[in-house]
Design a binder for these strands. Structure first.
Length: 853
RNA sequence: GCUCGGGUGGUGGAAUGGCAGACACGACGGUCUUAGAAGCCGUUGCCGGAAGGCGUGCAGGUUCAAGUCCUGUCCCGAGCACCA
């Protein structure tokens, strides 16, 4: 039932149809295994306090068009939405106001939901999820337990980024230019006990399987670079003082081993102290302290001159027995390879620079053909004993083999990818389902629930006591957050949870996971041990690592999703979201997914087979939108002034979906006029169907244009080219305007094409023009290829490649006829006059190019 | 520094190697109106009265034909950054 408004009153029309869709459950994904499925997913938002940003509806409109189009194409569509609701802003708000972050989060969700609904998106709200809901994070915790049980989670005391302002550690990825990505506060290094996920165990598969996914090439390359695979060799140098054992280095150029004139250890390398000799000890120690105080930004500043200090010790080059001095320098980092290198200044830029600065010898071992050093190109070996004359790639292979044969090295592969720092000293995150117990407690657990434990116990030592990580039994999940007095982190660097003694210090039942405060007497029956809960919480990435699976079966109490649902819906057919998640979210989610695949939980080994990034919408001034610049465009304002349909159309009309585009506030008038024009053509001044839209027959040109439009809009939607689809619909509307009339059927077909873009508008006119039911359920119109055929085409005449005239000719016109027509063409003829034709190029139905002398 | 992506009218943008500038915005002129708004009609890459010439960052090249392919170069944007 249409509204009763006389003119195009979107204030009335849009809420009307939104209510209609809601009441009719129009977007409910069916449970119908016989029907072909289409799963289209948006990156779910973090419900921030500032509400929806114009960038959200850009991507959401794109997926909504796809979803509605696929419904019309007869697919069973899954188009869900939810909330990535754990996160720092809500916690900071809680610290300021003392209110629970959950209440702030729920308020924000209400706002987001209202705004999203006002845009008329076809989400299946019955599948809404919220990562902070215990019914959801129960399964986040469950997945963590699987990682734990498989030995993919461990604790490690490691130098991590600590932000004094935020009072938490941050992942490498959350630190940008020596400052926190959130808030831009300075960060420093601290040694803290952390949970770490062994993502490096999946490095090879994460890299290899990128080949099979349909992603933007740039994103694949970013992940490749992030994983950073490099093949080389680990080479073992004996130390002159054998009491310290051998020194292992990683190199990608074992062929240049004869050119190694010194070694470098990272300042954090465990052998540094032992290798510093005599009067150099003090100098080495001073250097090490200085390096520790440097931020990564200072250390990696390429403009800075290299620094370093000689240790006083020597290693022995395994290929020629030469003594090689060992230096300590911070251009070598501990986190990659072995934290030590063999320096070959003739063939490495960094080593070259260092050697020059400290006047170390430079020995060339690859022929450079006269090119200056450092030389990194191709060439044959020199000064390399038995390997002289070999191409370097060949020498690389042979030297590696020879070293391996002598036990002095082996071919290895190294990755830049580091294990994933997975803990945060915060309140507002998923608690780890882990209890720390002593050795005796762990021994009991090994007897009681060995199925839950990893092959090797996860432990740490503090104050001479070893603590053992014990998982909660899955049936005891979720482990919920306790309410706390203060959301401020504890002074020790632990999360606020460390202050909640009754939650923290417990008697723990190994069999059931039940707990009572340690202050209470130990319960009699059951396998109770004394324990202390883990106080860290999980990072925000955790909840978003698997949410696309929960949408398949969001209310399941027994599993992350039923196997049948996982099989039927599979992975999203299309995943749309910002390129800022190119590495982190998309890599973490792939990692978890592969683990779940190995567990047999999910049937496919990649989560996101097709990915698309919507571009950023810049402010009017061409700058990134930000409150401080005052160039933020609010969807609410535009919905009020022009309507959701106009906003949706304009967002898509702005340019290619993946492009970065500035917002032009005046341009929105164009698409609004387009809708007004369609309304005016089809609806009379009194609100009834116009006389014009009641024609008996369409002009042949209009029919042809309609079929062209059906084809182009369909093709463009499939390829996410929404801007050109809209342009084609505008062309059609302009043609209708100029035509004397249009049939009801043609008008209805056109409205169907428009419906995915401007759904409220299309439903309204569909209803007024007598369309049956909801336009969403009407099958997508098919074009008739025979209608696209033309009898006449415009042939362009060129002389020497220049356009000199054109003429309509029948399809199938031959070169001879065309040439004759050109000669007779009054505009072309003068250019042929008195010239000799050297060559004629004829492209049927397109161009005739006459090359003359 | 390395790796990508991109430079087309006043603006956003369009163009399987085959008429560069579709579709819009803006601007200008007209129509309607007491006036305006909306709508409608027309013009709108640059130079030129016209004929015509020039034109897709710049310089070359391939081709009958280049925004599109190749080489070099400049500029803008993104990502990575002493990873051995």
């Amino acid at each position: 039932m249409a509204t009763d408004c006389i003119d195009y009153n979107f204030h009335k029309i849009e809420p009307h149809w939104q209510t209609f869709w809601e009441e009719n459950h129009s977007f409910r994904a069916e449970r119908n295994p016989a029907k072909q499925k289409y799963y289209v997913l948006d990156m779910f938002p973090y419900p921030s306090g500032s509400g929806l940003h114009i960038g959200h509806p850009e991507g959401y409109t794109a997926t909504d068009i796809l979803a509605r189009y696929k419904w019309a194409r007869g697919f069973n569509v899954l188009h869900p939405i939810g909330w990535d609701a754990f996160g720092l802003p809500a916690e900071q708000h809680a610290v300021r106001t003392g209110t629970h972050p959950a209440s702030n989060t729920q308020n924000n969700i209400v706002t987001f939901k209202r705004q999203i609904k006002a845009l008329g998106f076809s989400y299946d709200w019955e599948r809404e999820i919220d990562t902070t809901d215990p019914r959801y994070f129960r399964w986040t915790q469950w997945i963590f337990l699987q990682l734990f049980q498989r030995g993919l989670a461990y604790v490690d005391e490691r130098a991590v980024w600590w932000c004094p302002e935020l009072r938490t550690v941050l992942a490498n990825e959350e630190v940008v230019d020596g400052r926190s990505e959130v808030g831009g506060f300075p960060v420093e290094r601290r040694n803290l006990r952390q949970w770490v996920l062994r993502i490096t165990a999946y490095a090879e598969r994460l890299l290899a399987d990128l080949k099979g996914v349909d992603w933007p090439e740039s994103t694949k390359r970013m992940q490749e670079a992030w994983i950073g695979r490099s093949e080389g060799a680990e080479i073992r140098f004996e130390l002159e003082d054998k009491s310290h054992g051998p020194l292992k280095v990683f190199t990608t150029r074992p062929d240049t081993l004869f050119g190694c004139t010194y070694m470098v250890l990272a300042p954090e390398h465990p052998l540094v102290e032992a290798l510093a000799t005599g009067d150099l000890k003090a100098e080495v120690e001073a250097y090490r302290r200085k390096a520790a105080g440097k931020s990564d930004l200072e250390r990696t500043d390429l403009a800075k001159e290299k620094s370093g200090v000689f240790s006083g010790s020597f290693a022995i080059n395994p290929v020629n027995g030469q003594r090689v001095p060992i230096w300590i320098a911070d251009y070598v980092v501990m986190g990659y390879g072995t934290g030590a290198i063999m320096a070959v200044p003739a063939h490495d830029e960094r080593d070259h620079e260092f050697a020059q600065r400290f006047s170390l010898p430079i020995v060339q071992v690859v022929e450079s053909g006269g090119a200056s050093l450092p030389y990194l190109g191709d060439g044959r070996m020199i000064h390399s004993g038995a390997y002289n004359g070999l191409p370097w790639q060949e020498a690389k292979r042979r030297i590696t083999e020879d070293l391996a044969a002598r036990g002095a090295g082996r071919a290895t592969v190294n990755y830049k990818l580091r294990d994933w720092l997975f803990s945060r000293q915060r309140y507002w995150g998923e608690p780890f389902p882990i209890v720390w117990v002593d050795e005796a407690g762990y021994a009991r657990a090994q007897a009681t629930r060995p199925d839950l434990l990893p092959g090797e116990a996860v432990t740490f030592v503090q104050g001479g006591v070893r603590h053992y990580a014990l998982p909660l039994p899955p049936e005891a999940l979720p482990l919920e957050l306790p309410s706390v007095q203060s959301y401020l982190p504890s002074g020790t660097g632990e999360s606020p949870l460390a202050n909640e003694t009754s939650w923290l210090e417990i008697w723990f039942d190994l069999e059931t996971g039940a707990a009572v405060p340690a202050s209470a007497p130990r319960p009699a029956a059951g396998a109770w041990v004394r324990g202390r809960r883990e106080t860290n919480t999980m990072p925000q990435w955790a909840g978003s690592c698997w949410y696309y699976l929960r949408f398949l079966d969001p209310h399941n109490r027994d599993a992350i999703a039923a196997p049948a649902a996982l099989r039927y819906w599979g992975a999203p057919d299309l995943y749309v979201g910002g390129a800022e998640h190119a590495v982190l979210h998309l890599l973490y989610a792939r990692f978890w997914h592969k683990v779940l695949f190995d567990l047999g939980v999910v049937p496919q080994d990649e989560p996101f087979t097709k990915l698309f990034h919507q571009g950023i919408i810049l402010g009017e001034d061409g700058e990134k939108m930000s409150k401080t610049r005052g160039n933020v465009v609010s969807p609410d304002t535009l919905i009020d002034s022009h309507g959701a349909d106009t906003l949706r159309l304009y967002l898509m009309f702005l340019g290619p979906l993946d492009a970065m585009k500035p917002w032009n506030p005046r341009g929105i008038e164009g698409v609004h006029r387009f809708l007004q024009k369609v309304w005016r053509e089809l609806i009379a001044a009194d609100g009834s169907v116009s006389a014009k839209a009641s024609a008996d027959a369409d002009a042949p040109e209009l029919i042809k244009l309609l079929h062209e439009t059906i084809k182009k809009v369909g093709d463009d939607i499939e390829h996410l080219r929404f801007n050109t689809a809209i342009s084609q619909m505008m062309i059609f509307a302009n043609a209708v305007q100029k035509a004397p009339g249009v049939t009801r059927d043609t008008a209805l077909v056109f409205l169907q094409l428009l419906a995915p873009f401007a759904p409220h508008f299309a439903e309204e006119l569909w209803s007024r023009l007598g369309g049956q039911g909801s336009i969403m359920r009407a099958p997508w119109p098919a074009y008739d290829p025979s209608r696209l055929a033309t009898s006449e085409v415009k042939l362009v005449f060129q002389v020497n490649g220049k356009h000199r005239g054109d003429q309509f000719v029948p399809v199938g016109t031959t070169q001879e006829t065309a040439l004759q027509l050109a000669r007779n063409n009054s505009r072309v003829a003068p250019f042929l006059d008195g010239k000799t034709v050297k060559r004629v190029v004829f492209v049927p139905a397109r161009v005739l190019n006459i090359v003359v002398e």
